[in-house]
Computed example of a mutant assay.
Amino acid sequence: MSKSSSKVFMFDNNDPEMQQACENARASFRYFWREVSWERRRIIPALDMACVKTAFSDGEPEAGGTDNPEVEQMWLGDVDFDGEFVSGVLLNSPNWLKSVKAGDTARRPLGEISDWMYGISGEVFGAYTVNLLRSRMGRAERQEHDAAWGLNFGDPAKIRVAPEPNKGGGLLKGWFGKKQPDSQEHPMSENMAATLRKQLKEDPSMLTVTDDRGWTFLHQEALAGNAATVKTLLEAGADPKAATHDGKTPLQLARSLGWEKVAALLAAR
């Protein structure tokens, strides 16, 4: 179920097409996380919103899927990810659940999320389950749905996964459908490599400073799949074997989201 305005759209987890939509969302989650990671580094925000969907329940769900009143699918904002768990703040007010409310924090394994989406200039990326529901609506209902969100979801048969650079260095809206842009580097990673090399020469501590979880800059960039940035950090002397407080190495984080190019760079060290 996703909710826009006061209307409720039922989410049947026993529906094979819905199951596939959820699976596709989980398989492509790395592109969501890469964009969120870049957003955290931007001086001027570029994302209209970024959220993930997961199931909530007052207790153990009954047999029959998530279309029964025991379970609601709702969106989390302020999303964080540590290579295993997705966490965030509940954006929705439940329709019938009593144990959760908007503003509550939640933490779920990546395998339990059912969708993700983010927006750039009003254009939506991701939204696999939302677009499946939209594909089953008539034109008028779809327009009403999109107007309630205030966003352009586009053609429900074509899922936009990640932005791509244009010739002027800006971002266009990349259409990838079922094909994932595995070989594509985020344009900001490539464009900022030279600037990063200069910053590292001026402040080598950038290579070793850690946050409260024990994460270095290399850990963060490995999880985000930024190959050009990871290469620059390694060339400057970043430690590929450094471990976070819970024992994660950059290589483990890169592999957790299937960033093969980044994993190869780290494994070579």
Rank of each mutant, 00 (worst) to 15 (best):
M1A: 04
M1V: 02
D12V: 12
E17H: 01
Q20D: 06
C22A: 12
R26K: 07
Y31E: 12
E35N: 04
V36K: 00
W38K: 09
E39N: 03
R40H: 12
R40F: 11
R41A: 06
R42Y: 02
I43R: 03
A50E: 07
C51H: 11
C51L: 14
V52C: 04
G64S: 05
G64K: 04
N68F: 05
N68L: 09
P69S: 10
M74Y: 00
W75S: 05
L76R: 00
G77C: 04
D80N: 04
D80P: 00
F81N: 01
D82I: 02
F85V: 06
V86H: 07
L91E: 10
L91H: 12
P94G: 13
S99H: 09
T105Q: 08
I113E: 07
I113M: 06
S114V: 12
G119Q: 12
G122D: 09
F125E: 03
G126H: 03
A127Y: 10
V130N: 00
R134Y: 05
S135N: 04
M137H: 07
H145F: 14
D146N: 14
D146C: 07
L151M: 06
G154W: 08
P163C: 15
P163T: 14
N166R: 08
N166C: 05
N166G: 03
G168A: 09
G168C: 15
L171G: 05
L171W: 03
L172A: 06
L172W: 06
G177H: 03
K178I: 13
K178Y: 06
Q184K: 14
E185H: 03
E185G: 02
A194F: 10
K198L: 03
L207I: 15
D211Y: 03
D212Y: 01
F217I: 10
L218M: 06
T229Y: 00
L234T: 11
E235T: 15
A236S: 10
A238M: 08
A238K: 12
P240S: 10
H245S: 10
D246R: 09
G247E: 04
T249E: 11
S256G: 04
W259N: 00
